[in-house]
């Protein structure tokens, strides 16, 4: 792999929220991820880019795919990975978050990938770090920036494929002006918040649709349109983001029953039939088939769920690479 140009204002930064990114930084993440897709196709799927760097993954909240995806990404870049098992750690013994992360930094780590059930925890950790970069792998209801980058990356690839071209080097041009419709539990969704920031930054028009109890507070202050007629909005949408009902965050009590939610806001077979033939569906996973998405829709060709998962690795490689690079360094392939 040849050296990539790297803009100085997008490297060496924490990745806490999409709202911190400039459009240049957003595009840089997408383009660097394209370059790392090539590594995925090699026989030895590993590059020495982050050799000697140590990445700690601190998951204070359960996760399967995000953790595996980040750790795989770090290993493909030849970083050493330290994984804190919270369940058996000093956190369980009452150690404060600050002491935990300061202890880990004292071991000489270069990056912390953190997931936490509390919004803002990665921002606080970033303030407490002297030199390590912090990558947010999901904080409470607040943000999940790499998931939004994956969604944009995957959608960009799918649109390019529909147009019979490569997505590499297209920036956000394939996303500009697209109609994005986000459906479901937006109130409790960090994915929705990061998607809104990312799609709006990329120039798309974002609409949201949810029962009143699952809409964000004060939606008029958000850069989105709230739509009430879901069927009409589906017929016009280019991209539909279906969110998981977050029962672990209590979203179950915000609707009378999951069956009623499915009937009124679920991506059922009937609703999928309203979509245009070239519309795309994303879901951050894990899907709850039969609740927010029907099994048939989940397996529909227009549904990008599996590609989102496989794109997780190159996008997180890009995020780690950009966070750990300095302006003087390029990618050494």
């Amino acid at each position: 792999m040849s050296d990539l140009p790297v803009k100085s204002d997008v490297v060496g930064q924490h990745l806490l929220s999409i709202s911190d990114l400039t459009i240049d930084a957003l595009i840089e993440h997408l383009e660097v991820a394209e370059a790392f897709c090539e590594v995925e196709r090699r026989s030895v799927r590993k590059v020495p880019t982050l050799k000697g760097k140590v990445v700690a993954s601190l998951f204070f909240e359960e996760s399967t795919r995000t953790r595996l995806s980040f750790e795989t990404a770090a290993k493909r870049l030849s970083a050493d990975v330290l994984s804190l098992a919270v369940a058996s750690s000093s956190v369980k013994k009452g150690e404060s978050l600050r002491d935990t992360v300061e202890t880990i930094e004292a071991m000489g780590i270069d990056a912390v990938v953190i997931r936490h059930s509390s919004a803002g925890a990665p921002h606080q950790v970033a303030r407490w770090m002297d030199r390590a970069r912090v990558l947010n792998a999901g904080d409470g209801w607040h943000a999940h920036p790499t998931q939004a980058l994956i969604d944009l990356f995957t959608v960009r690839q799918a649109i390019a494929a529909q147009e019979g071209r490569t997505s590499e080097g297209t920036g956000v041009s394939l996303l500009e002006g697209r109609r994005v419709l986000i459906i479901g539990d937006i109130r409790h969704s960090r994915v929705a918040r990061s998607q809104i920031d990312a799609y709006v930054l990329a120039g798309a028009d974002v609409s949201i649709c949810a029962p009143g109890t699952l809409l964000p507070t004060g939606p008029a202050d958000w850069p989105v349109t709230v739509v009430e007629d879901l069927d009409a909005a589906l017929a016009e949408a280019d991209i539909v983001s279906v969110l998981r009902m977050q029962e672990e965050r209590g979203s179950g009590s915000f609707v009378p029953s999951l069956a009623e939610f499915t009937a009124t806001y679920g991506m059922t077979d009937r609703r999928a039939a309203l979509l245009r033939g070239d519309a795309l569906i994303t879901h951050p996973g894990p899907m709850v088939r039969g609740v927010e998405i029907s099994s048939m829709v989940a397996d529909d060709d227009r549904c990008l769920v599996r590609r989102q998962v496989s794109n997780g690795v190159p996008v997180r490689m890009a995020a780690l690479f950009l966070a750990l690079s300095t302006p003087e360094e390029g990618i050494r392939g």
Partner: peptide, 13 residues
């Protein structure tokens, strides 16, 4: 404080 800022920040209001 509950409101659009709390909601953007993902903090319960």
């Amino acid at each position: 404080n509950a409101g659009s800022l709390a909601s953007r920040l993902g903090l319960p209001g």
